[in-house]
Amino acid sequence: MILNPEAQKRAQQEIESVIGCNRLPTFADRESLPYVEAILKETLRWQPAAPIPLPYRCSESVEYEGYFIPKDATIIANSWHISRDENLHRDPESFIPERFLVPPTFRFDAEDAGTPLDPTTYVFGYGRRKCPGIHFADSMLWFTIVTLLATTRILPAKDSDGKDILPRVEYTGGLVRELLPTPYHFEPLSATHAAIVSDLVTSI
């Protein structure tokens, strides 16, 4: 959100128009917040946490789209490549939630009318071995994103000269990546939002 302030602003305007400023969003609001949903999908696509999922073993010999895959072959999917496939996602290195709106509100050129591939079909794994916690993870990601956007501005930290410290998109290695620490600043959207968050923390 620091690197894409216009996306943050648009999502906050959507949230305010749907639920106002006097309560937190709930799961009942999810279908009414398509831009927040698009931010979730674009976040999963833009920087998948597991670019290369666990290997699979082929349980029987099969032919798939002209390729013969023998029994016991090791299959390693490439979620990173899928997320960067320009036939599926134009300008893949850019963070563009609008590509996941229905219908998409972002066009790269007059011939670009395709629908991007939903990242939830590949970032959680594949087939019968897909992550069993996919629905829990999806719900918690959405709830975290919408709650932060509904209550705070996510801003860059400042250096000693008062200039913005913009985060670099850098991750740890390993099967599951984590974003390297980067400074940031949370600012309540208003005194009302600050009170809502304070009441929530007190109740917990």
Rank of each mutant, 00 (worst) to 15 (best):
H81Q: 10
H89Y: 15
E37S: 15
T115F: 10
S59L: 11
S83E: 04
D29E: 13
E98W: 04
R45N: 09
R57C: 10
T74L: 15
K71S: 12
E93N: 04
T105A: 03
C58F: 08
V36D: 07
L88C: 06
D112V: 03
L88N: 07
P70W: 05
F108C: 03
L33N: 08
I52A: 04
L54G: 03
T74N: 11
F95K: 00
T74A: 14
Y126H: 14
R57G: 05
W80Y: 15
E31S: 13
Y67M: 13
K71G: 06
R30L: 08
L54A: 09
R99S: 00
I39W: 12
D85Y: 12
L24P: 03
N87S: 06
H81L: 10
L101A: 00
Y122S: 01
A73I: 14
F106T: 02
P103V: 03
A38Y: 12
F108P: 00
Y35E: 00
K71D: 10
P97Y: 03
L54W: 04
P116N: 04
T43W: 12
I96M: 02
P53R: 00
T43G: 14
G66A: 07
L40Y: 13
A110T: 07
P55E: 05
A49G: 14
I82H: 09
H89P: 01
F124A: 03
F68E: 03
S94F: 04
I75E: 14
N22C: 07
G114T: 11
F100V: 03
E98C: 01
N78H: 14
